[in-house]
Amino acid sequence: MTTSVDRVAGPAPARRPPGVLRRLRKDWWIYLFLLPTVLGYGAYTVYPLVASWWFALLDWPGFADQGTFVGIENFERLVADDLFWNSFRNSLVFLVCAVPLRVGLALVLALLLNRRNTPFKGFLRTLYFLPVVTTGAIIGVAFTLLLDAGGPISLALVESGLLDSPVNFVADTGTSLFSGAAVWVWKWLGITMIYWLAALQTIPQEVHEAAMIDGAGPGREFVHITLPLLIPFLVIITLIDTVGALNVFDLLYTLTAGGPAFSSEVIEIFIFRTAFGATVPQLGYASAAAVLFGLITMGIAVAQALGVRWARRATGAMR
């Protein structure tokens, strides 16, 4: 997705650039076209970003009209707040468990569905994709019933002998976060599978045929030919899914609300709880948490974007 940035340069007139003012006057309509985006984006994306930095420096109880400036006190408290680090850790655990599972399982499914001799591909693909279009918040609520100790999942596991006794998946400190991760993978697997199918279609048929002529089996063909070609996609898809894994508020908030005892409280729920849910709401403190986590997220994104660039260069050299 990031790649189109390079392409938007578009066809460029090669004439000598006229004076700035004259250009601005000649191109007034361009700025008119941009106006909705610039206004909207400025007000609803850039301003909030800047404002949350300012709010992070305030002591601002939610029931007061405005905050008082306290410098970096919020950050100092944050660093000492076990619950912030708890939610940070939960977000990371969620990321590390759920993203590889989603990316890997989706790749396996895509490979199987991409085989010429698998019947009913379209039908299967539809079924896998169905949860993607559903509403996360509603899925969260529905799964509180499905994952109840008396619900069908627990019951099926007990009857099949996989469990000795019913488990309250979402109300157990040991399983709540992982239940959330499992539901998230279930919900979003289909879209990652489509990404992979799109990626697989970019591999020319000749590559496959050449491998067959060389006598490579399907396993060897995958490891030596398909896999290297997929690496740039692997990085992009992992990046997209990682960002997705940091946007799990709707699903987790409705499934576990971060509980029991904060065992599934990810950073977004921490922010929401601090800002809106607590008996003493603290907007400044919540903003500081948002800022800190936003920085970390951006760090991850930048690291991965660099990864994309590196992978593209590496594969480019190979071709």
Binding site: V8, G10, D27, L34, L246, N247, I271, G294
Partner: peptide, 30 residues
């Protein structure tokens, strides 16, 4: 953006790229 050149284009694209991955939950208060 796709078909024309204009003053400020680089800046605009730069802002887009920087804020591309900003998750919704972090700006809800402002």
């Amino acid at each position: 953006l796709g078909r024309h050149r204009f003053i400020g284009k680089k800046l605009l694209i730069g802002i887009f790229v920087v804020t591309f991955f900003l998750p919704e939950g972090y700006t809800i208060i402002p």
